[in-house]
Design a protein around this nucleic acid. Sequence first.
DNA 1: TTGCAGTAGATACCTTTGTTTCTT
DNA 2: AAAGAAACTTTGGTATCTACTGCA
Length: 795
Amino acid sequence: MAQDLSREQFELLRKVLREKKEEEAVQGDEIKPRKRRKRHGDNPPVKVPEPAPIEVVVLDSSDSDNSMSSSMEDEDFDSDEFEDVLPEDESDDQGEDDLNITIDKVDKKAELAAKKLKEQQQRNVVSHEVKKYRKDFHAEYLLCLMVHGYIRNEWLNDDKLLNRLFKKHIIPEKVEKLLHPTLDKELPLRSTRKLLDGLKQAMQLWIKHCHIIKSYAGVGLYMRQWDEISTNFHNQPTTKQQFIKDIVRGRGTRDILAQGFVALLRAYNVNARLCFSCQPPDYCNMKLNHKSAQSGSNFIDNDTFKYPIFWCEVWDKFTKKWITVDPINMETIEQIRHVSKLEPDSRSSRNVMRYVIAYDRKQGCKDVTRRYVKHMYSYKFRHSRITNDPQGQEWYDRVVKKLTLRKRMKIDDYEDVYFQDRNETEGMPGCLQDFKNHPVYILAKDIKQTQLLKVDAKECGFFKLNSKKQSNKVVKVFYRKDIIELHSPRQWYQMGRVLKPGARFKKIIQKRGINRLNSSSNGEEEEDKERLYSIDETEIYTPPNANELGEIKKNTYGNIEIFAQSMIPHNCVLIESPVAIKACKFIRIEYAPAVTSFSFGGKKLRGKGNVKPVISGVVVARWFKDAVVAAISGIEYSLEQDKQQESELKSLQDWNEMLLRLRIKSNLNETYGLARDEPKKNDRITNIHDEEEEEQEPVEDFQVEAGGFFIGNRENAGSKEFELPPLQADGSQEYGSPPLQGGGFLSHSKSESDPSSEMEQVNEDQDENGHDVVDGNTFGIDDEYDAFMDDITNE
DNA sequence: TTGCAGTAGATACCTTTGTTTCTT
DNA sequence: AAAGAAACTTTGGTATCTACTGCA
């Protein structure tokens, strides 16, 4: 059987090769129309086009005129080359000008890209991708720093370290007593005073103890610029052992010595915590070129290490507040009310205080930035933190929670009260920009179309513009809590709410988006207005329950919309699975396809018809749940099996094809010897064809087998092309496994077909026999075979 | 020199259930 | 022959963002 098959296919191959040669001989002219006929179905390939483009030209701009006429010429003369270069893009336009237009497109694309790049460079703003990358990098860097702080804090809790520090008797008994003052009932402040005294003396003793201060490698943990990210000047990794040794001996960088002070206090049973100001690179900085890099002098200046990265906080149980101690850098102790000495200059490019994390001795981790930053509501500060967008906030909270191993304590409550107080006393922003998205205040002019001021709201102050031009201009300032958010009924429904009976709209605005256009074309004036309602005018939508048969009320499109949990009928469940509908049909129960969102077309393809509901599953009555889930898993299982079978089949086909190729090759060699020159080869093939009759059936088999193989290969290549640089982990998976089968085989079979040793032998034979045939033939046929296969797969 | 308002220019957002033609 | 896939469609106003500039 296999033998026969190969024979048939072998004949087919010869036939096709012959045809191809003929076509080539007759010139590309013939190939073209043939292809076109296929693509455009009924339209005959006639050479009518000549007048047509001219007419179009009159209508269109003069540019297209040129391109069209030139395209005609191109096609006539160099068609073959273009065919090879751009085989697939032809179907774009009608007939003749297609080739050239495709090329123009490519040119334009490249031109546009180049132009964009140039513009970016001129504007000194990085591309969108880089922006995203910087933000991700910022978050990752921050995570690493926070974990670093966590580990250091763990080390500081080590008994061995604490014991050794204690045994060193750095702190005399007198001072130790001060660190643990008793409550002075008459004047609690006196107790705090004692504590502060004790801390001061302990700090001085510690400073004395720290006799060797090493310098940082590079900038240490201070902030790096984006162009320094790849430069390798990290601190040398420290082992725990080394760390303990260094602290006990009082040597190390400022960071380690500051950490050592925390350990010292802990050794004397003081509730001290380690503060760490994390300095991930600034993702708000979108500049392409940094001034620092240009000037170079900015690398490390005198003030760079003035403010600490690590310091210490001590709990004062009398005032219920934390006392800040910076033993190494500033050598200060402070009880912070509104301003801290530790907050660096806002212009600093090396130390931007955005995330101050405190790690306590009970394995607690807390963001205490509030204590140290004066203007946390300033635009710049809010934007420089990853918590600026809700997603980032969620991420950040999760990280902090993961690093906190203890339960919440009373101390946390006291601290939160303090933070709350600080928030409230921060006051009104000093500049216009800081009012943007300010959580407390809003300028009258910034109230949006879809927002409304409460009726009884009064301005809480005025803001005077700083510029000279409008020095007289004074703007009203309101509390943001006096603003009501308004939404259209549809928007409310999207949130699972509907209008209350008798609801009255609060405001009418112009409709937005594509609806505006549609309704205005109707000519009715009312239609392009949108009525907005406040949340008070709405209530949670409760859908009707399914009846005993499990019938669910559907909308006019035959499905049910689930945008919120509450939109699922009470006695029903939502089951999300791509095969859920199939499963329901299979077990013949009542169900409703669930629309959970809408998909909008790509960036440019915004149109009426481009909005499509996303049906992510079904809603079924509660009592059907188990059955549906079981059916789904059954279907998924069988699909999985099908898939596996398919892939097995495919690899078998691949093997089959490889063997086939080998057989064809050896058949050719055996039967006809080895041919050298192209013309001779041609002759032979034509002759062969004359001898044999054509057979149709094998064609299909052949195509199927070959097709699978090459398509696999092609897909693989495609996915590679469109992959972004490996920012995302997903990308790499696509390269990997299954499609590679094809590629592997291809190269393999090729290398099999030209093993040099074989060829050499053959050559020798030929020389002896006096034949003028050489290895070139095998190559040639193989190549043509490839081309032929390519053609088949293309069509 | 510094901080600010204002600027340009790019970009994001909003939207929220087709129709026709070709292929399998 | 029916079902399903693919092609076609290609707004525009408002808000936001960011580096830069000129002014005081």
